[in-house]
Simulated scan of single mutants.
Amino acid sequence: MHLAASIGVAEPSQAKPSQAKPSQARAMIGRWIRYYNEERPHQFLGYVAPRAHPALAG
């Protein structure tokens, strides 16, 4: 899945930043930070997402 689709952000050609409200921007940034920190594979963890890594799970 494409990163933009996974966090609910429009493709660059579809995005209209001048129309985004600050609350919408905060929500999108929050989703991106969550994805970046929890869901994307990390090199240090052997390209496993932290959420799925056995040493970090629950």
Rank of each mutant, 00 (worst) to 15 (best):
M1L: 08
M1G: 09
H2V: 09
H2E: 12
H2Y: 10
L3Q: 01
A5H: 04
S6E: 14
S6T: 11
S6M: 13
S6P: 05
S6A: 15
S6H: 12
I7F: 13
G8T: 08
V9R: 13
V9T: 14
V9G: 12
A10S: 09
A10G: 06
A10C: 06
E11C: 07
P12D: 07
P12A: 07
P12R: 09
P12I: 07
S13L: 02
S13Y: 04
Q14M: 11
A15Q: 04
A15H: 03
A15D: 02
K16H: 01
K16T: 02
K16P: 00
K16L: 02
Q19H: 13
A20D: 06
A20I: 05
A20N: 06
K21H: 04
P22R: 01
S23P: 02
S23N: 09
S23D: 11
A25G: 09
A25R: 12
A25W: 11
R26F: 01
A27H: 09
M28L: 10
M28A: 12
G30W: 08
G30Q: 12
R31S: 12
R31G: 09
R31F: 06
R31I: 07
W32C: 15
I33Q: 14
I33Y: 12
I33N: 14
R34T: 10
R34L: 08
Y35G: 00
Y36F: 11
N37Q: 13
E38N: 13
E39Y: 00
E39M: 00
R40W: 10
P41R: 01
H42T: 09
H42N: 12
Q43D: 05
Q43E: 08
Q43P: 00
F44M: 14
L45N: 02
L45Q: 05
L45Y: 04
G46C: 10
G46A: 08
Y47S: 15
Y47D: 15
Y47G: 08
V48R: 02
V48I: 03
V48G: 00
V48W: 00
V48E: 02
A49V: 06
A49P: 03
A49F: 05
A49H: 02
P50W: 00
P50I: 00
P50D: 00
A52V: 13
A52D: 15
A52E: 15
H53A: 05
P54G: 06
P54W: 03
A55E: 12
L56A: 03
A57P: 00
A57Y: 00
G58P: 04
G58V: 07
